[in-house]
């Protein structure tokens, strides 16, 4: 029974990404490699951040502003890293394109680029879920569960799994938005991604209040669904545009 609960928590956090991985990513080895490297990048960023904050830990449990500072620095750092990730990807894209030219095959399609962005985002999201939720699940497989004081109605593992799911969604699709924004030079898309990330991080601070998770988690899901909708609209537009272009050019 407890094993079932543990697996259930894991699937709440990672189920959607798992199905995304199986249905889309695993078909193309290159995307798997992208997921892996982006996961690794996120892990490295987490290690660096924790190295920076290590001297100040543990933070006092009843003061909220150090946590806010921590979230802000982490988000800034990770957004900077996202930009670097984009730069690296840009070079990779050039290499791939010239490689395609050399063997006289078509260059990367628009869908390919979107898929690579999706894989990169999925890597970030999975890394988030794995390190913030899954790695703490070990006790959930045992014969007990755990509640935190500030969110006393729901088991800790379930809350963290639900929050992790929201973050997986945000990370996955904001990477697509960011890559498109960088590629098109669209300022709005470039700015909206850090804003979303920061907003989501700040919303978790609501959990700091007693029973704050009742408010904080739904708000987080609002942000996540906004990301999802924006990403969907943007991709749809891009696909229509490129179809019009290709039919126009023929």
């Amino acid at each position: 029974m407890t094993v079932a609960a543990g697996i259930g928590y894991a699937l709440v956090a990672l189920g959607p990404s798992l199905s995304l991985f199986v249905s889309v990513i695993s078909r193309k080895p290159f995307l798997i490699l992208t997921v892996l490297s982006s996961t690794l990048l996120w892990l490295v960023s987490l290690i660096i951040l924790s190295g920076l904050w290590r001297p100040f830990l543990p933070l006092k449990a009843n003061v909220w502003w150090p946590y806010a500072l921590l979230v802000v620095t982490s988000v800034c750092f990770q957004e900077a890293l996202r930009f670097m990730f984009w730069k690296v990807y840009k070079r990779l894209e050039d290499v791939l394109d010239s490689f395609a030219d050399r063997i006289s095959r078509p260059r990367l399609f628009l869908t390919d680029k979107l898929l690579i962005a999706l894989a990169g985002g999925l890597g970030h999201g999975v890394a988030h879920a794995v390190f913030f939720c899954l790695s703490l699940l070990t006790p959930a497989f045992g014969p007990a569960t755990f509640y935190v004081e500030k969110c006393s109605k729901v088991p800790f593992f379930l809350v963290s799994a639900i929050i992790a799911l929201a973050f997986v969604t945000i990370h996955t699709f904001s990477m697509v938005i960011a890559f498109e924004g960088y590629a098109k030079g669209n300022k709005v898309d470039q700015v909206i991604v850090p804003v979303i990330h920061l907003a989501a991080g700040m919303l978790t601070l609501v959990n700091f209040a007693s029973e704050g998770c009742v408010v904080g988690v739904p708000l987080l899901y609002v942000v996540a669904s906004l990301t999802l909708v924006h990403c969907g609209k943007m991709v749809w537009q891009r696909l229509l545009e490129s179809r019009n272009q290709s039919s126009g050019s023929q």
Binding site: L57, Y67, V71, L136, N207
Partner: peptide
């Protein structure tokens, strides 16, 4: 290297964050 970094640096950080339900 990653094992020891994780064990020494990351774990207190992540555990401290998540038990307060903070994530980013």
């Amino acid at each position: 290297v990653f094992y020891f970094l994780t064990r020494l640096l990351m774990e207190p950080f992540v555990v401290g964050m998540t038990t307060n339900l903070m994530m980013f």
